[in-house]
Design a protein around this nucleic acid. Structure first.
Lengths: 211, 211
DNA sequence: TTGTTAAACGGAGGGTGCCTCCGTATCTTC
DNA sequence: GAAGATACGGAGGCACCCTCCGTTTAACAA
């Protein structure tokens, strides 16, 4: 009778809950068992029937995408939180480290994503934009505070980040990536103007001994 | 009684033949149907039983690797042939174009390879070395002929090549890659010494109107 | 040639995962 | 509380994976 001529019923509570559960389970199962884990395993872990899984995510790729999107969003939100941190440089550094972890726990997922991205790069565009924005906000703050050079764009930084993660061969890649990122961030720093010029490419940490 | 105490029988002719057939079929099937095509389809196309396929290549990855290796070798041999061409610059250009085609016909294969490479990068090392050598021989010849600048290493060139092929998103990527490679090769050229200095970073094509 | 034997062949079959379909259960709305 | 919409679960049909073994075939010796 009233104003509900647009037929929008409230979505069913169980549907929302189940969708969430499946996503959570998928994240765990894919991260642990690689990207070609059984969907039935995901359903079981989520405590739902296989039919439910398929209703929410008609294809394996759809599920994949949803999981990935959500992780990208989490990384993005992390940036939002870190924006309130005291030290802007440290905030950026921490975000990057989280990014490495993100890549690390994904195991085969990255490769599978490359495959999924091929057909319909909308996902790629989305994540690129989102992460650029995230990294940009952190970068801007550090620049505005006069702690970092201003001639690096968020896109550059993001690409550098991915490039450093792309070692992915040796077992120690994670440590390598972290080291490279540290060096990179050091390189981005504007040396404190009152001090002597910082040595350019060394592992020396200027003043702050402790961290 | 003579010198065949080391028990090496001649390998059976049918075994050799079948192995070859499977490889050929796999190349076609994977290229056409993506990387997760059915192995049974491969066997059928090769005209052998599924058991035969599995005897020769115990896992999907093994088959994959064999196909890939062989293609890398073919690319490598192509370089060998092109070494005898008249114009060394044109030879290099042609090799690169073949490389694009190679990537193009592989469809999902590249992504699948990324996945396969993760566990045991021996294959990666092999192909990298092999392709570097191939590209290097062509490059060296052009440099020796005084037609190209000498400050680009084969590794650089190879990476540039892969980078340009890594566009892989838009439908027109292949054309893009070819264009980029052309520009790149042009950039590598030593300008004919009798001419005026080439403008440095512009899209202007110096003299040659036609191609 | 013919016989012997190691090697390779093919495909049946058991197992697993994919995905659809539909009777049943549950939630929202009135 | 009743009605109707919506979501649930899992049985079942299908495709593919991979192993196993009886049969076939090629290499070698005599």
């Amino acid at each position: 009778m009233d104003d509900h001529t647009d037929q929008t019923r409230k979505p069913r509570a169980d549907a929302v809950r189940n969708r969430e559960r499946v996503l959570e389970a998928a994240k765990l199962v894919f991260s642990a068992g690689g990207s070609e884990a059984s969907l039935e395993a995901v359903a079981k872990r989520a405590g739902v029937g296989i039919g439910t899984l398929y209703r929410h995510f008609p294809t394996r790729e759809a599920l994949f995408e949803a999981v990935y999107r959500r992780e990208v969003e989490q990384l993005s939100e992390l940036a939002e939180q870190l924006k309130n941190a005291k030290d802007p440089v440290e905030a950026l550094r921490r975000w990057l480290r989280s990014g490495v972890e993100f890549v690390a726990t994904k195991k085969g997922m990255m490769a599978a994503l490359a495959l999924a991205v091929q057909s319909g790069s909308e996902l790629h565009a989305f994540s690129f934009e989102r992460l650029t924005k995230a990294i940009g906000s952190l970068l801007d703050r550090a620049v505005a505070a006069g702690e970092m050079r201003a001639d690096i764009s968020p896109e550059d930084l993001l690409r550098a980040f991915f490039g450093m993660c792309y070692v992915h061969d040796q077992p120690g890649w994670q440590a390598t990536a972290l080291r490279l990122l540290d060096v990179f961030v050091d390189g981005l720093r504007v040396p404190p103007p009152s001090k002597a010029k910082a040595r350019s490419s060394k592992t020396t940490k200027p003043a702050k001994r402790k961290r």
